[in-house]
Nucleic acid binder design. Structure first.
Length: 811
RNA sequence: GCCGGUGUGAUGGAAUUGGUAGACGUGACGGACUCAAAAUCCGUUGGGCUAAUCCCCCGUGUGGGUUCGAGUCCCACCACCGGCACCA
């Protein structure tokens, strides 16, 4: 009989589903394992080969854990709100909900064809009102704790999506999703105070088993820096508070710079303090109209305007210094104002050169500060021209001056973060409505919880508008409501939540997906938390992964979830590139559709290849040819099952190899080295072909293979009679036993080196003593040749591996 | 500029963490089977030297170093990839 994957695969998919073999148990004496992969956005194009890489990896892990006796939760769902669906709906005049339903059905069908062991009874869909009810509920809790607030500020505006973006969604000045330019727009937005959690988001990384680059990237993004806030006086009497990481250089502050949007500038303009008001206003206007792209452009020459009529006073030297406004000082970081120390900061130096400001060296040890700034922060710098700080190292001067400033009441130690609050409103239709109501009398009021979910209304047109109003604002019937506080006339918030809302807590819903009374029951949360292993893409490190950690910490604080962190372990997979090593894309025409591979070779071959393709964490290049190698391997396994002997014992020649393979594959799965696990099984199959094999040998092989290629494994399990015998499927089997003593061969090959160079090998009985090995080694002709004329001064033995003779020429 | 990663045959990638570099797969070449092809099976496949699949020499981005021994550790550099970037 031939290996007929096309009939085998649907057969077992059906049987698994009917027997619900992959359903997670809510109550169990077994230890629990919660394995999670990032749920997909169900796009119209369906799955591409990038999806199965993480899914197959976690599926193998989940299957292995079941074989190890765990109660496994391995769920799947759909992150279905979002712009592509909305845009597709607009173009094709179909309601986004209908499009979403179709896409989810298509994805589900495709995923089932690959044979994943998902618990299909726990599917979540973020667009389902019974789901987003709880997304809205979490928002209300955030609001009640003061962590959601409405603020008017310049925000990122995508010119193509016609929608605001979070900082995390802007990549190099363009929209992360569509690549269109992002401009700054003053808008009133719902914000989430993620900054309140900045320190905890850094600190709690320490206890987590996350791959290092994820931790590093999150820390960089949060961007903690320590320094001091120092109060300067303006000659007009106001305080100007600046943030600096180098309070030690305070004596070298020769001018100040405020961001163009700084409050004091407005005040001075309004009160007529500035002689060059027109010039200042013109600069403000120019800065405001710049896009993010222009503002962050590299090597851009510094611009700015000196304020005429107001000066600052250096609080330590008492000197009057000029004040500038410039867009190199950001209004959104620190206090929006800096003291400029051109001698010891590159940016200040550049600005000072252009505007002719004084450069005073206050840290010696570098080159001439008139030629370049000396920025070293280590012990190489010694303070000078700094009164009582003179002679101190930078490291010592920072705490000294900070203490002094605090005593004098003109400065405080201060920590700042680059992380900004999360801009949470979107001016689009296909998202969760924000459950807030505006009353002219009572202000913003949260919708009472018993009115959740606040359903997304049916609308005629969901087109975004140029003026930045949500499509929902046109639904006057829906918008118009009563105030929950005073009962008077009120208006609903018409913006919706960003895509990241639903995905910030979905892993909790899997624990108890149908609960109408809570995001999940206390018992379910206690039992399943935390996620034991979460695999996902690096692209979500400073988006979804950070946001969901923030939400989880908040839910922990209000007593909803039992753990501080949602995910105990985080791993990440590399991308699958098209043939030729380029990113797969429709325009390049190098997209591989998993359906085609399944049709031609079967799902098991697809699974095997996608895991064999290379190092799981690195990018890998797709190769149609290499797929065939995996198919050939499965063909060999199939043929062996038809030629094996009836014995249920391991064949003597294969026994050691099987035991080694059992250990190797188990270890490799845990370490996500699926490629070498498969290679080990390929080698074992080669041995079976050479030595012949028994049913018992095949039983071990099939069991090990089953997490990787589950369909063929079930079929062979049945064909060889194991199913009838045990009345189980192979996926319910325990992992084969490993006995180290069985792997010890009777002889070992010892490498022989002379002066560290390989000169031959020798076969000796296992456990031979050093003398025996040395004697045997010296007999080897190629070795003897090199030892001839040498006096051996030292012999190094590596047990079971190697012997190395060190000699010197005989006198 | 700062942070992180990677660099090994024609090719995707292995190497038990300092101990026989190139496992396993692909491709290529040779052979068996076949009228023939496909499929399958067997063999060869880093470079040099050679009659030789004997032996020897060279070989893991480059240059140094530590070590009996380095793809692996240290120092300096080069190239590519990713993240952050006027964050005071």
């Amino acid at each position: 009989m031939k290996y007929d994957f096309a009939s085998i695969e649907p057969k077992w998919q059906k049987r698994w589903e009917e027997a619900k073999v992959y359903a997670a148990q809510d109550h169990s004496d077994k230890p629990k394992f919660y394995g999670l992969i990032e749920f997909p956005y169900p796009s119209g194009q369906g799955l591409h080969v990038g999806h199965p890489r993480p899914y197959t990896a976690m599926d193998i892990v989940a299957r292995k854990k079941r074989m190890d006796g765990y109660n496994v939760l391995f769920p799947m769902g759909f992150d279905a709100f979002g712009l592509p669906t909305e845009n597709y709906a607009i173009k094709n005049h179909i309601h986004p909900a209908v499009v979403t339903r179709q896409n989810i059905a298509h994805f589900t069908e495709q995923l089932k064809k690959i044979g994943y062991s998902f618990d299909w009874d726990r599917v979540v869909d973020t667009t389902d009102p019974s789901y987003y009810k709880w997304t809205q509920w979490i928002f209300l809790q955030l609001y009640k704790k003061g962590l959601a607030y409405k603020a008017t500020m310049p925000v990122n505006w995508c010119t193509s999506c016609k929608c605001v973006l979070a900082n995390e969604e802007v990549v190099e000045g363009v929209c992360e999703r569509c690549g269109s330019p992002v401009i700054r727009k003053e808008k009133s937005q719902w914000m989430l105070k993620i900054t309140e959690y900045a320190q905890r988001l850094i600190d709690d990384l320490d206890g987590l088993d996350f791959i290092e680059r994820v931790k590093v990237q999150q820390k960089n993004w949060i961007g903690r820096s320590t320094g001091a806030e120092v109060t300067f006086k303006a000659t007009t009497g106001e305080d100007i508070i600046v943030f600096t990481t180098r309070p030690d250089t305070l004596f070298g502050a020769t001018y100040m710079v405020l961001s163009p949007e700084h409050e004091l500038v407005k005040n001075w303009l309004e009160s007529g303090k500035l002689a060059n008001a027109d010039e200042v206003k013109a600069y403000q206007k120019a800065a405001a109209s710049k896009s993010d792209m222009e503002r962050t452009e590299l090597n851009k020459e510094k611009t700015g305007v000196k304020l005429d009529g107001v000066r600052g006073v250096n609080p330590v030297s008492g000197r009057e210094i000029p004040i500038f406004i410039s867009d190199y000082v950001l209004s959104t970081y620190g206090t929006g104002a800096i003291m400029a120390v051109p001698a010891h900061d590159d940016r200040d130096w550049e600005f000072a050169k252009k505007f002719g400001c004084e450069i005073i060296e206050v840290v010696s040890g570098g080159e001439d500060v008139q030629k370049a700034a000396f920025t070293a922060k280590d012990d190489t710098g010694i303070l000078c021209n700094s009164d009582f700080l003179n002679g101190l190292t930078v490291k010592d001067a920072i705490p000294a001056i900070t203490k002094w400033l605090e005593e004098k009441g003109i400065g405080v130690h201060k920590v700042n973060y680059k992380l900004r609050d999360w801009v949470f409103s979107r001016q689009r239709y296909w998202g969760e409505p924000i459950p807030m109501v505006w009353c002219d009398k009572c202000g913003w009021q949260p919708l009472p919880e018993d009115q959740l979910p606040l359903l997304l209304p049916e609308v005629e047109s969901y087109e975004p508008t140029d003026d930045g109003e949500s499509p929902l604002s046109k639904m006057t019937d829906w918008v118009s409501t009563t105030c929950p506080c005073c009962g008077g006339h009120a208006r609903r918030e018409t913006d919706t939540m960003p895509q990241w809302a639903g995905s910030s807590w979905y892993f909790l819903r899997y624990m108890d997906p149908h609960n109408p009374n809570a995001i999940a029951s206390k018992e379910a949360l206690e039992y399943w938390s935390p996620v034991d292993w979460y695999n996902g893409g690096m692209e979500h490190t400073t988006l979804h992964l950070l946001y969901s950690r923030f939400w989880h910490k908040f839910l922990y604080d209000i007593g909803v979830v039992p753990t501080k962190e949602p995910y105990a372990k985080r791993t990440s997979h590399g991308m699958i590139l098209g043939e030729g090593g380029e990113k797969m894309s429709k325009s390049r025409g190098n997209v591989v559709n998993p359906d085609d591979i399944i049709k031609a070779y079967g799902a098991d071959t697809l699974r095997l290849y996608i895991m064999f393709i290379g190092d799981f964490e690195q990018a890998a290049t797709w190769s149609d040819n290499a797929v065939k190698g995996c198919k050939r391997f499965l063909d060999k396994v199939w043929n062996l099952s038809e030629s094996c002997t009836d014995s249920l014992d391991y064949t003597k020649e294969n026994e050691a190899g099987i035991h080694k393979c059992v250990k190797k594959v188990a270890d490799d799965i845990e370490a996500m080295k699926f490629n070498t696990a498969i290679a080990a099984m390929m080698t074992l199959v080669g041995d079976f072909q050479k030595n012949g094999c028994s049913k018992g040998d095949m039983k071990a092989l099939i069991t090990m293979l089953s997490p990787f290629a589950p369909h063929i494994a079930e079929e062979l399990w049945e064909n060889l009679g194991f199913a009838a015998q045990s009345n189980t499927m192979v996926c319910q089997q325990p992992w084969p036993e490993y006995d180290e003593s069985k792997t010890v061969a009777s002889t070992v090959t010892i490498a022989i080196q002379v002066a560290g160079k390989l000169r031959g090998t020798v076969e000796v009985p296992a456990g031979s003593g050093n003398e025996v090995i040395e004697a045997a080694a010296k007999e080897v002709p190629t070795v003897a040749k090199f030892l001839n004329g040498l006096e051996i001064v030292k012999v190094i033995h590596v047990p079971g591996k190697l012997v190395n003779f060190i000699g010197k020429p005989k006198a």
